[in-house]
Each structure stands twice: as structure tokens, then as C-alpha cells.
Design a protein around this nucleic acid. Structure first.
Lengths: 248, 248
DNA sequence: AATGTACATTGACGCAGATCAACACAAGGC
DNA sequence: GCCTTGTGTTGATCTGCGTCAATGTACATT
């Protein structure tokens, strides 16, 4: 998933996160050429499924624009979102042939893909790429574990505050906002999707958002547009120690 | 974390998971020598903390014997376990200098360690090691995400059944049990530690274990020794589609 | 035997969040 | 205009699990 580090690294190449300075400044140029050769783009509409859990997945890639979600579903229909993919986030599992989760586009989505086997070949010859991928995967692991704390131990109100503060921070770094001043952005998820991320029902999500609004922690314009007058206050509501946690 | 794959790979070298066939059959022998040079062992007693979250961590390594936990704690003391380390599991973050979680030995523990910077150097020269580490990290990521479903969407009873079935399966593969027949093993965690893993209170854990026992899903001898008469039944209780899920 | 400590079980009670249900509002399509 | 569909809000009620508290069990220490 996205974090300040991978994002910063991504600045110099909007369309292909693998090929950014952090990796490629150290790579030989013919390796870069080869990456370029096996690269292609895929476009999805909002609501479309990118891959189904268990299906063969013969590419790896990253999000160029739009938002996708990773979800798991039990037989009886209970679902849990296990990841949120924003621009520059990586998808795919070198060394695996099938997808472990449903990947769904929640907005229109553009992905930059590489066919898996040539990509793996390249990884074998280019240690920096494998190392870079390892770092990105460790970031995702941190994010997933951070989220385990949210799911296991936080109250509904704290969960909502956590989610909003994560989205706010991602959005801020995406637009290179330099700290301070009120943040404003659109929630990229429906109430139901938030509920699936937070392990709540959509009614509880709605109620808690209303409560945070009433208490002045956030302002709402319409149903989606949020402004945050005081980020520290929000993080306090989220139960985070100021500017410490939340790697996502 | 442990799974069938990393475990199988581990069979041929009990003391050092990095140096098993899956990686090293393809490595040059002088690289192996160098790994050997920077390797050392550390021993911890039950209850000792291996590293504190935020502390400098200048090694990576893996569990040789015993059990350790990864936990996160909020300021007010709420804690969530985010990982369970069993023999052959890897700890550490190439490319990071500080620990992200508390690592605590819950039993006497032996770890096989490598100083971080020489290990990283080696990774840079030996693509297979980076790739192997990437695969292991992807396994952990799957496990963490699988656990997000448990934390976010399962009932207390299902959570307990999930935990017991995971421990049962790990134990079975550790002893190379070939399917079928009742499984028997000791729970390696206190009720409190289970509660921290499952996002429950220890009272609820105790109650649900009693309930599963009363309903014949498990048998209990003393407080820790469990036998499972019917694994399929247990997995049904866990809400897993038979032999599908649960990668941990 | 007496005492302490760590771990586990069980009961009584209350509340946060789920569930069920009604309603609001905007955007299309006809 | 009217109807439908997707999305969000709010209320009333129910319940699973947390909280508080008492009790039990096994072992170690003196």
C-alpha cells in the first residue's frame, strides 16, 4: 500500500511505480528497456472486478489512477476488505499463480501491468527490483497489522476516525500538501465499503460519521466531501498517539 | 509466518531457515559460507521481551525453537497481537532500522540471527535470497489479511475455532502428521494471549472454549491439552470452507 | 500446613453495536 | 410528470460480548 516513502519515490514517474528512481537509478538501462517491453495498461470501470479470488492471475502491476479494493468473502456473504489500493500501490504476487482475494475497482481504474513470468525473470536478474518489492511488501504487511489493531481493539467511533485520518493523510501526501491548515477531500468509498473495511455495519458507519460531524471533529458537505479543521483532534479521536502510528 | 511451504522447505535444516534447500540449492557456496560467518544464536526465557516497538533492531533472524508473539499496544493499554512466531518463522525488516512491534518470547526461545547490514549486503548480491524473503513476506501478508477477516467479521465462537484449527494444522505439519485420525496438542498460549490475538477478553475466550468442549467439538485435558476428534467439524465451526482457507 | 501467585472458570449485569425497518434524496430513464 | 435504483440517514429493539466480581486449581515458597 501507499505510504509516504513509496509515494515520494513515485513522484518522478506517474505511470509506473516499479520504474521510479528508488529502484531504477541503480539499474542498468537494458533492464529498464526490458521492463518497458513487457509493460501494458488495463482500464476498468467503476464496479468492475479486476480478478476473482482463486482465479489464475498472470500479471503483476500497480495502480496508475483510481481506487481498487481487496476483499475476502465467507460463504454466508460476510465480507471483509483487506486492502485499499490507491495510485502507486502494487498488486500481485511474484511466485504465485492465483489471486488470493477479489480485486474490485471502486472507481474508474487504470493499471500498469507486467506479464508475470517475464517480470519474475527480471527480478531474478535484478536484485534491486526484488529488494524494492520486498520493501513495498513489508510496508503492506505493516499496514495490514496496523489494521488488525483497528479491527480487534478500537471502538466504532475510533475506527471511523482512523479511516478518515488515513484517507486524509494519503490524500494530503498525494497532493503534496505541506502540513497544517484544514484538509479537504472526498471520501472515495461508500458507507458500505467503509463498513466492510472497518468490520462494522453501514448503519453504524453512518451514525458515527454523523456523531463526529455533530461534535465538530469533521465537517461534511453533501455525503462525501469532508473537511478536517484540526488533524490532531481527529487523530486523538482515532486513538493514535499523535503523528506516531498508521503507516498505510 | 509458518505455512506448509516454508515448513517443508525447512525440513533439511533445523537451525536456520534462511539456509534451506529452496534457496540454497541455487546459491553459490561462497555465499553460503558468508551467511554462515554472520550467523549467531540468541536465547530468551519465557516472558522476556526480544525487542520493544520503536527500538533499534540491528539483526534479522528466525525462530529455531519456542514461540514468540508480535504485539501492538495503544496508550491506554489495549493490546492486539499481530503475529505468532513459530519455529522457522522469520523476524526482521531488511531496509528498516527499528522494530515496528513488541516481540515477546512466550516460551523459552532460541533464535538464529544475522547482523542486519551484512545480511542486506548479501541480499543485494544474491537475488535468490531476496526472492525467498519476498515469498515469505507475502505468506505473512496473506496470514495477516486472513486474520483481518477473523477479527472483523467472525463471532467469538468462530474466532476460537479458527485459532485452534490454525494451531492444530501448524502442529500437525510440524510433526509431519499425515491427515486423519484425532489430533492432539498443547495450546501454546494463555487465555489472555489468545484473547489478545482474537480481539476478545480472556473471559470470553474461556467461556467459548468451555462451550466448544461441551458441544464435543474439542476435548480438553487439563487446561491446555486439546484433542480434536473431527477436524472438519472444527473448521465448520470456524466458518471456513473446508480445506480452503487459512494460510498461516 | 499455610500462604502466595499465576492462570482459569463461571455468574450477573449493562452497553455498544447489530438488526430490522422506515424514510430522504439525487440521478437517470421513460 | 412518475417510477426506479442507488445511496445515505435515523429510529426502535435486540443481543453478543465486555465488565465486574467471586471462586477454583495447580504449583511454588516458607
Amino acid at each position: 500500500m501507499l505510504n509516504e516513502r513509496s509515494l515520494a519515490a513515485h513522484q518522478d514517474c506517474k505511470d509506473c511505480p516499479i520504474r521510479h528512481k528508488a529502484v531504477c537509478a541503480r539499474c542498468e538501462s537494458d533492464e529498464l528497456e526490458r521492463l518497458e517491453e513487457i509493460k501494458y495498461y488495463r482500464r476498468f470501470e467503476a464496479g468492475q472486478t479486476v480478478v476473482w479470488s482463486g482465479d489464475r492471475m498472470d500479471f503483476v502491476g500497480s495502480v496508475v489512477s483510481g481506487i481498487a479494493t481487496l476483499t475476502q468473502t465467507m460463504e454466508d456473504g460476510r465480507t471483509q476488505m483487506v486492502g485499499l489500493l490507491l495510485p502507486s500501490d502494487f498488486v500481485g504476487r511474484p511466485g504465485r499463480s492465483t489471486a488470493a482475494y477479489d480485486v474490485v475497482a471502486t472507481t474508474d481504474l487504470v493499471m500498469c501491468c507486467f506479464r508475470k513470468s517475464p517480470f519474475e525473470d527480471m527480478m531474478g536478474r535484478t536484485p534491486h527490483i526484488a529488494q524494492r518489492l520486498l520493501e513495498m511488501t513489508l510496508d503492506e504487511l505493516d499496514a495490514a497489522r496496523e489494521w488488525m489493531l483497528v479491527l480487534g481493539r478500537k471502538t466504532a467511533r475510533e475506527k471511523i476516525a482512523s479511516l478518515i485520518s488515513i484517507i486524509a493523510r494519503r490524500d494530503a501526501s498525494l497532493h503534496m500538501r505541506t502540513s497544517d491548515g484544514p484538509l479537504a477531500f472526498d471520501l472515495p468509498l461508500t458507507r458500505e465499503a467503509m463498513a466492510d473495511y472497518l468490520g462494522l455495519t453501514l448503519e453504524t458507519v453512518s451514525r458515527q460519521i454523523s456523531a463526529l460531524k455533530k461534535d465538530g471533529v469533521i465537517h461534511l458537505e453533501g455525503k462525501r466531501h469532508v473537511t478536517i479543521p484540526d488533524m490532531d483532534r481527529l487523530m486523538e479521536e482515532a486513538g493514535d498517539d499523535a503523528d506516531g502510528g498508521m503507516l498505510v
